[in-house]
Design a protein around this nucleic acid. Sequence first.
RNA 1: GGCCCUAUCGUCUAAUGGUUCAGGACAUUGGAUUCUCAUUCCAAUAAUCCGGGUUCGAAUCCCGGUGGGGUCACCA
Length: 453
Amino acid sequence: MSGTFKTKSKKVRTRFAPSPTGTLHVGGLRTAVYAYALAKRYKGDFILRIEDTDQKRLVPQAKEKLEEILKQFSLTWDEYYVQSERVKSGIYAKAAEKLVRDGHAFYCQCLPRNAKTEGFSKILRDPCRDKNLRTGAIKLKVPENKKVSYRDFVIQKEIIWDSGVVDDATLLKSDGFPTYHLAVVVDDHDMNISHVLRGHDWLPSTPIHLLVYEYLEYDRPEIGHLTDILDPEGGKLSKRKGSVSCEAILAEGYLPEAILNFVMLLGWAPKDDREIFTLEEFVKAFDENGFQKSNPIYNRDKLNWFNGEYIRNSKNSILMTKLVDFFNRKYAEEKLEKIIPLVRERLNTLSEFESLAGFFFELPKADKKLLGENFKEHLSGAITVLEGVNIWNLENINKALMDLIQSKNFKTGKFFMDIRIAITGSSVTPPINESMEILGKDESIKRLSGILN
RNA sequence: GGCCCUAUCGUCUAAUGGUUCAGGACAUUGGAUUCUCAUUCCAAUAAUCCGGGUUCGAAUCCCGGUGGGGUCACCA
């Protein structure tokens, strides 16, 4: 390999540069994880840069929310910048003016064009490359017949354009704010970013950036474009088919570690068959040659599996903390402590706790249709023997019930199913004798008799 | 439509010209355990998009199709 990544002279510095126009998506999260891992793998810096140069699209609190979510995923940054705050320094305007001075950009007063009214097939050149203009927007003056190229470190291939297909992109808007094309180049240079890692959607505008790098006489960072995560129904991942915002997925009861592990492996894979990675382990295992080049599909089943794995592998105490937080302290810890061992292997998401263990807290409405034909015999028998249990523990409950089954010749499965329905209201539950032990003698018997009355 | 990226089981992927009747995981199906459901364990089904080359040998390299995706704003 080229050795680009092992250079001792240059520290690896990556950045995650979201625009605060909405919530963080799983795709954005994945980009952030890779950028983070790349930096940390080489003991470098991970930088968060808020790209908020479009004042019209700002969403209140989006920035704060973004930061909070990144923290939830333990993606902590070493440095932090906000582009709009940097505009005042004049750094972007100076760069744009230099380009004009050097003949690589021009002022333009054309009305902003609109892709929808303009048609799409022709290459659009602005007609007003007028040397004398000093107002309006500043646009890149793209040369004719020039080959523009770079080697993409994700795609691992040289990508070449003819300048004829590159647009005279706007660099500085007439409101004085830079567009992405200028800001990204100026900032990545100013912040000493060594590796630009971003979404595939930026690939087509890369030649613009390449030209700007050249004209500003900047050293170019390594550039890599990640695949897009696709929707199972086709096209880029979208909101309407299930939640893809990190916030929403978290709210459904998925654990940050599981989500992280899931997105890590959407487009990157280790050389061995390992699948479970904490963030720290991922950083160690990560290498920039393992990227997939074609777009992966967002696969909910695998996420569910990861989440189940993480729940099952959590210590009971940790799982309790997570449940307490997730349900906003709705459930008492003492009770949770007893219930968790019964449900931990049955939970794929935290939210499922409610349907699986809700009966511990609230008397369920039993659907009598679920009961077997011998339910009266079963329940009254159970009540009788359970009344006789003086020390209410699992062993005694088991014995009382098993003796009953044997003496009355009940079908074990049918018997317990009737008990289950009466106690929990559901046919899918944790082990029923253990559940009754937790519920207590009085409550258990109360529920059993409730059905008979 | 122009430009660009891409193509291994249904899905995520391994294999970087030869230890491969293509390996792992999820999902699916069957079985074992079991008071339900899970967990756990075992097993099965299942892929190199198509067509040409190059080579003794191709999933791997080249070309052409086709499919998928992206992009073409004073948005990022």
